[in-house]
Amino acid sequence: MIIFVIIELQKFNFLNTHVLEKIIKFWSIIFLIVTLDIIFELIFGFNSIGFVSEYPGRIASFFGDELIVGSFYHFFGLIFIGYLLNKKYPQHLILIIGILIILISFMIGERANFLRMFISIFLILFLLLKINFFKKLISILVIMIIIIFTISVNDNLKIRYYSQLKSIYTLNGIEKYFKKSQYGAHQNTAFQIFKNHKLFGVGMKNFRDESKKEIYENTEYKKNDIRQATHPHQIHLELLSETGLIGYLSFFILILFSIYFSLKNYIKNRDPIQLSTIIFLFTSLFPLLPSGSIFSTYYGGIFWFNYALMLSFNRKFKS
């Protein structure tokens, strides 16, 4: 299915340049609608059609009880910035919009996706905007000041971004944090599964069945009793536990070659949207950060669609 999407999107981009441009414009409009809805929810505590997040400090928007708007915002935010750069909007306006996107991503309350968004927008703006370097640094400083101030006055965000993470900043903090969290229980189980099935793993989408077995109990992890899940919430450990070293190395050889040829094409043709897809792919694969499943879930769908879109530009501009 993934291969079919890649091939068809390559054909579509190659043969229907103007149609793809209209689609990206439509995506940009959707992104702006979701942005307004997020702001609405931040002000009123519910979104424009009445959805309410069950978790303080998290925004639901149109996704209801599926708290996935952060990954949506990461992908479409980068596409939107790429679209503005393609259309030659004023550089200072794009800088301001980039700052606002980062701040809204922060307010959504999805920590991992906020970090990915921050790094992604930072890379795009610093690489593509022809604005004084000092102004770019001032912009980063402004973002940090606003974030620190917001955390200090908003109790829910203080819990999300400080109280729940403060153990990380102590001696052996990362290890302590993971041993107390459900993510830690998932990821420890995935690593144990990998150690028992090093070459080929337990098979795609089989973590959900393997993780409940008694041999993976580890009382060092506080949430050990809820270690079972559909996936281990970390791409690298998902690949290692379900496909083993063979699958893991095959995946990253594919990804690295794809990024190499896409960067080569970008350097030749300078399409900001392709750079946005490259950066999205790069930040989606950060180690340690929690993530959705790459083989299923909404997160995986966005990941592979972005991958197909990135490759489609290579075919589009091939000489």
Rank of each mutant, 00 (worst) to 15 (best):
F149T: 05
Y307T: 03
I49C: 12
Y216A: 10
E110L: 11
T150S: 05
N154S: 09
S211C: 11
T219P: 13
Y221C: 11
S250Q: 10
F12L: 14
I215S: 12
I159T: 14
L93W: 08
S291K: 02
F317A: 04
K25E: 09
G70K: 03
L9G: 08
Y162D: 00
L237R: 01
S48A: 15
Y266L: 08
S312C: 06
F282D: 02
L103T: 02
T243L: 02
Y307N: 01
A229W: 01
L100G: 08
F303G: 00
L67S: 06
K180W: 08
I30Y: 10
A229L: 01
H236A: 06
F31R: 00
L67H: 09
K212F: 13
L115W: 06
S211N: 08
I24S: 05
Y83D: 08
H92V: 15
Y162C: 04
K87C: 10
S312R: 01
K87T: 12
L100P: 04
I294M: 06
F126K: 07
S211F: 07
I43D: 15
R315S: 15
I33T: 12
F80Y: 15
V52S: 10
G64D: 10
Y221S: 11
I104C: 04
F126V: 09
K268S: 14
I148N: 10
K268A: 13
L165C: 11
S48C: 14
F31E: 02
I24C: 08
T297V: 15
K316D: 04
E175Y: 08
I49V: 15
K213A: 07
I39K: 03
F251G: 07
F313L: 06
G292R: 00
F118G: 00
L42E: 08
L309N: 03
V52L: 11
E66N: 15
Y260R: 12
R270L: 15
L95E: 10
R315I: 14
L125P: 01
M144Q: 09
G77C: 06
K158N: 14
F305H: 04
F252W: 14
S276H: 01
E41C: 05
